[in-house]
Design a protein around this nucleic acid. Structure first.
Lengths: 109, 109
DNA sequence: CGGCATCCTACGCGATACTG
DNA sequence: CAGTATCGCGTAGGATGCCG
């Protein structure tokens, strides 16, 4: 992160909704998780493979996104375990952002 | 970055415009620079103060954004130096993304 | 003012191994 | 399968000092 301290970051975020969004996403991979889950619910391992990230980072990111109310976790206690991650309503509203990014990417990158 | 290697990241980016955008932005502060410059051209020191980042990071980020054709640099060789950064046409097209983020931030964060 | 070079540290993140 | 725990490295990025 390029913003000095956590407190200073919060200062910047107080007034600017864009900064808040950037802060909420935290890192590029959160966005890709959201993109995937908006498409359809996914299992842990599916995300793992789709994004090519370590279990550690994926776990941490998913945990953060849950705390933010952007994704939810649904567990079926079979054996082996079956866990599904879904986008929440709040998370689905990111669709507009994702769409804007998709349009931009297609056109300019 | 949560994507294993640079090559792997490029692989992911090949097919997905969203991943390409996320990769182009690189970090949250790029987005804030773009937000500022879409508003109006800024001087180096103005960005520095607005974003609260070190000269090092600001320099590196601006350089990258220039290379990507998102911002341009305009220098008036007075003394003291007067340098202005402006958004390019390609950069201005991020306006849609920025707007989507602003809406989201206002509503949900 | 608008940088660039250097040094240095925190920590992000992958790799690995182990559990329920 | 879906994680948790630990270790260890790489590097992003702040602090500082100097220059045109």
């Amino acid at each position: 992160m390029a913003l000095r301290t956590a407190t200073q970051r919060r200062e910047l975020c107080r007034d600017c909704p864009i900064a808040r969004v950037a802060d909420a996403l935290g890192d590029p991979c959160s966005l890709l998780i959201i993109r995937d889950l908006i498409d359809e619910p996914r299992r842990f391992s599916e995300l793992e493979e789709s994004l090519g990230m370590s279990t550690r980072t994926l776990t941490l990111t998913l945990r953060r996104l849950q705390k933010q109310g952007i994704v939810s976790r649904h567990e079926r206690k079979t054996l082996p375990l079956y866990v599904q991650y879904r986008i929440t309503r709040k998370g689905a509203a990111f669709g507009a952002v994702v769409d804007a990014m998709r349009s931009y990417g297609k056109k300019y990158l």
